[in-house]
Simulated assay, not measured.
Amino acid sequence: MTSYVLFLTVFLACAVEAVEAVTIVLAAGTSRHWGSAVQGTVSALLVLAVTVSALGPAIGLLPLGALRLVVGALLLVFGLQWLRKAVLRGSGFKALHDETEAYAKEVAAAQAAGAGGRGIVRDWYAFTLSFKGVFLEGLEVAFIVVTFGNNQHDIPTAVLGAAAAVVLVTAAGIAVRAPLARVPENTMKFAVGTMLTAFGIFWSAEGAGVTWPGTDAALLVLIPSVALLAIGYTALLRRTGAAAGTAVPTAAVSAPVEGTLR
């Protein structure tokens, strides 16, 4: 895998997680108390840094074959889950994920929660909401960086891709102070799901002792093959839904390719 492919894969995967984390923090800040939301965010980042510092190096001590087998299996689980949701949304069997709606739900829940603080934290609900959102999404970002970086022996490029995604999404969130509704999240999930699934197949097979023709060049066949298979399933499900009278989004009908990836 080239450094460019590694950077792009990590960037897209981490951007999806960053959008979700920023949406939660924005909801906590705008509906409750910005100071407490920022405190929760900073605290989560500190705890996350300690966790990754303690556990991250341990991954590098595992035998490479065993590491690729385990990581490949985990990537397959994550990739297939993301790809399944993207296919169902693209075919009309599942509603498109709406960051505006998710933001509104978080705001409503925050406004309904009781007030009160603890110690230097003025609003405990805003603090805990931001902390949990940033820490959980941050763990997924850390997992992506460590696994991809270790497997390709290029941690700096993986870190750079993750940092670029987090900084870009955070800057966009601060600039608009609203949910990142314009981000085509389902398109990103389709792309990331495709890449994670392809890498999961590649690494788990290598860990089991398979030697791929052309080594890393086999990914140039695996990635488009997985994408074409997913697009084919999307088209098949769309036709099945239309024949059965299942409602299909207008965007999916008017723009087949765009609907597939949105």
Rank of each mutant, 00 (worst) to 15 (best):
A172E: 05
A178P: 11
V146K: 03
V169L: 13
N150V: 12
N151T: 11
E137C: 00
D154N: 15
T170A: 15
D154T: 03
E140L: 03
G173Q: 09
R177S: 11
E185N: 11
A175Y: 06
L180R: 10
L160K: 03
K189R: 15
H153V: 05
T147L: 01
V169Q: 09
G173W: 14
A178H: 14
I155V: 14
G149V: 06
Q152C: 05
T157G: 02
P184Y: 13
K189E: 13
G138Q: 01
T187G: 15
I174S: 07
T187Q: 09
I144H: 01
L160T: 09
A172Q: 09
K189G: 06
E140G: 10
R182V: 07
F143W: 13
V166E: 06
V146D: 01
F135Y: 14
R177C: 07
T187K: 07
V134T: 15
D154Y: 00
V167L: 15
G149R: 04
Q152I: 02
G149I: 02
M188G: 04
G133H: 11
A171C: 12
V134H: 06
T157V: 13
V134G: 10
L136I: 01
T157R: 01
I155N: 00
D154L: 00
A162Q: 06
V141A: 03
V176C: 09
G138W: 00
H153A: 11
V141Y: 00
G149T: 04
P184G: 05
V145E: 06
N186K: 07
A158F: 11
A142Y: 09
G149A: 07
A181G: 15
K189C: 07
A178N: 13
G133C: 09
N151L: 15
V176N: 07
I155S: 02
F148V: 10
V145L: 03
P156Y: 07
E137Y: 00
N150W: 12
H153N: 09
A178M: 08
V169F: 08
T170W: 15
I155H: 05
Q152L: 14
E185F: 08
F148W: 02
V145S: 02
A158Q: 04
